[in-house]
Design a protein around this nucleic acid. Structure first.
Length: 220
DNA sequence: GCCCAGGTGGGTA
DNA sequence: TACCCACATGGG
């Protein structure tokens, strides 16, 4: 199946109907990385509460986040769910950043910005609690790498359009997009952002009909 | 009360 | 490899 023209059409349709997304919703690359961990299997509304708590406590910087006692970090991110686990994952992320950035990481993640994403990706994946979606979100949205992020919405939208089986691996789905699209960071960024907005608005599990979806006309 | 949400890792066969 | 499960809060 030649999916490249279909994906291009999906992208044009979403962009025309919805306009650019201006993603990721964060002030700094470090905040993107923190949000990427917090949003694992979690509604963004809950993540937003946790990020607000961290911001109020000046903790959205690598050094200040590191300085938080575990119990306090857990309490601040509690609204995002899985808070004990995510506190550990955030500390593991800090361990990684501190090891990779000399002399120390800043909120711009300056120490990573010049690195090749193909070199960084396996390093990120080796961090406990950072899987493919979290790693790719950091690469794409914090570091501006031409990496397409796959998520539950991507899989659901593609399946409902009959383009992929319901059960498909992360790597297979990602390859489908990255083989079809130009290796363009802005395109990867916007395409995934649009899919999440469509997923959030129309293509949910609760609404199996997708009525009113900008992509409705592309079905069949 | 039940289902769902922008995953990930550990255990078992 | 292929399942199954724990992790947890807030909204519909």
């Amino acid at each position: 199946m030649r999916t490249a023209p279909i994906l291009t059409e999906m992208y044009r349709t979403m962009l025309d109907r919805m306009g650019p997304s201006g993603w990721w919703p964060a002030k700094t690359p470090f905040e993107v990385a923190v949000g990427a961990v917090l949003t694992q299997n979690t509604n963004w509304n809950n993540v937003s509460r946790a990020l607000t708590n961290l911001r109020k406590n000046q903790a959205l910087h690598p050094a200040s986040l590191r300085a938080l006692p575990d119990a306090q970090l857990e309490e601040l991110i509690r609204p995002s769910g899985y808070y004990r686990m995510k506190a550990k994952r955030l500390k593991a992320l800090l361990d990684f950043l501190e090891a990779q950035c000399e002399p120390e990481p800043d909120e711009q993640l300056s120490g990573l910005q010049s690195r090749d994403w193909q070199e960084l990706r396996p390093l990120l994946l080796s961090v406990r609690g950072i899987g493919p979606e979290t790693a790719d979100s950091i690469l794409c949205y914090a570091l501006g790498s031409p990496v397409f992020v796959v998520d539950a919405y991507t899989a659901r939208i593609m399946h409902r359009h009959g383009l992929t089986p319901e059960e498909i691996s992360y790597d297979e789905l990602q390859a489908l997009f990255m083989d079809a699209l130009d290796p363009d960071a802005a395109l990867c960024n916007e395409f995934h952002a649009l899919l999440v907005r469509v997923g959030h608005g129309w293509c949910s599990k609760r609404e199996p009909r997708c009525s009113g979806c900008p992509l409705e006309s592309l079905l069949e």
